[in-house]
Design a protein around this nucleic acid. Structure first.
Length: 352
DNA sequence: AATGCGGGGGA
DNA sequence: TCCCCAGCATT
């Protein structure tokens, strides 16, 4: 195997780079599986800079898995608000209850048992097993794909079945069996700080000589990723009902974005609506149900909320009712409800 | 095997 | 604009 020397070299360089350059992150001061698990769930598809304040708030609010288990889902979602991918928060809460009440608060101690937990996949189970228990399982996240594909010059797409299998094998082959937890963090940190997606620091890289991508000037071409990215346009009309002190929020229950978060009553349409068009919609009429009202458009300039796969064109309609809103919530309690960033921004701008 | 799921940051 | 981020569940 011509690569054997390269593999050993790779491992040594990454490990020593990590010793010199690792950041002092709060979850690195612990090997408590609760903290490691929490940090890993928060960091899924999320930059450390974005996730760090959430981690600190979660640990402060829920110091143990029992504290998290005893919270309501709404409370957990509220603390998660703004971080995105809200199924992570729901699964986090579900698993906390599972561990607290079915496992006496003790997390599973092996990769295969950890992977059975809801919200814990291949990556997260490997991370927890290696970091907390020293099990020799390799993590493969976005950083690892990038570092390995560049260093070994692999152009197999990382998001197709063959690539996923290939990189898992490669990662396992170069894993440091003596210190899998530290090594796993080392290769990820190396990917995040040195072998970055854009403008990687090749000039100061200890792997430069043996890095296939660098030698072939292919660094900016790797890793290869098949792209789909179809963006769907959607048109939301939020009906902001107001009486003297109340408004109306509704939970999103359908299988769609923002499941279990709250919003104002929504009229979704195939295009932007005029006032006339809106007030003829059945959903709108049902909501008003014959009451008298004043209506105005809060944002004549339609605001666009961009998700990775949807652009949501939103109009907020302010509807003032003379009579009390049935099932209305007190306006000053609105901050207790978990809401999408889109709604939180409106509440702030409107001054609700 | 493919798709849906957030929001923010960097170039 | 586009891409990426310490991925996972569902179909």
């Amino acid at each position: 195997m011509k690569n054997r020397a390269n593999e050993i070299d790779f491992r040594e360089v990454v490990n020593s780079w990590y010793l010199q350059n690792k950041r002092d992150l709060p979850w690195r001061r612990s090997s408590d599986p609760y903290r490691i698990w929490l940090s890993e769930i928060i960091l899924q598809q999320t930059r450390i800079d974005q996730g760090l304040p959430y981690y600190l708030r979660f640990i402060k609010t829920f110091p143990t898995v029992f504290d998290l288990a005893e919270a309501s889902e709404q409370q957990v979602l509220k603390l998660w608000q703004g971080l995105g991918y809200y199924s992570r928060a729901r699964n986090l809460h579900y698993t906390a209850k599972e561990v607290a009440y079915e496992m006496e608060g003790i997390f599973p101690k092996s990769f295969s048992e950890l992977k059975k937990l809801k919200g814990v996949g291949e990556y997260t189970a490997s991370a927890i097993a290696s970091i907390c228990y020293g099990e020799a399982v390799a993590v493969v996240d976005g950083n690892v794909y990038r570092v390995l594909s560049r260093y070994f010059g692999v152009d197999t797409p990382i998001n197709a079945t063959e690539g996923i299998r290939y990189f898992k094998e490669l990662a396992t082959r170069v894993l440091d069996l003596e210190h899998p937890g530290d090594y796993n963090q080392a290769i990820m940190e190396f990917g995040a700080m040195q072998c970055k997606p854009q403008l990687p620091l090749c000039a100061s890289c200890g792997l430069q000589i043996s890095c296939v991508a660098f030698q072939l000037q292919r660094v900016d071409k790797l890793p290869v990723k098949l792209k789909k990215n179809k963006i769907k346009k959607r048109y939301f009309n939020y009906i902001v009902l107001l009486d003297h002190q109340h408004t109306l929020l509704q939970a999103r229950t359908k299988k769609d974005i923002w499941q279990h978060l709250y919003q104002f009553p929504l009229v979704e349409s195939n295009d932007n609506l005029s006032l006339d068009e809106l007030t003829k919609k059945e959903d709108f009429l049902d909501l008003i149900s014959g009451k008298s009202y004043d209506i105005r458009l809060f944002n004549p300039k339609v605001s666009v909320h961009k998700l990775s796969h949807q652009h949501i064109y939103t109009q907020f309609w302010i509807v003032e009712l003379k009579e009390p809103i049935p099932n209305g919530i007190h306006r000053k309690n609105i901050r207790e409800y978990p809401v999408p960033v889109l709604i939180a921004n409106f509440v702030k701008d409107f001054g609700l």
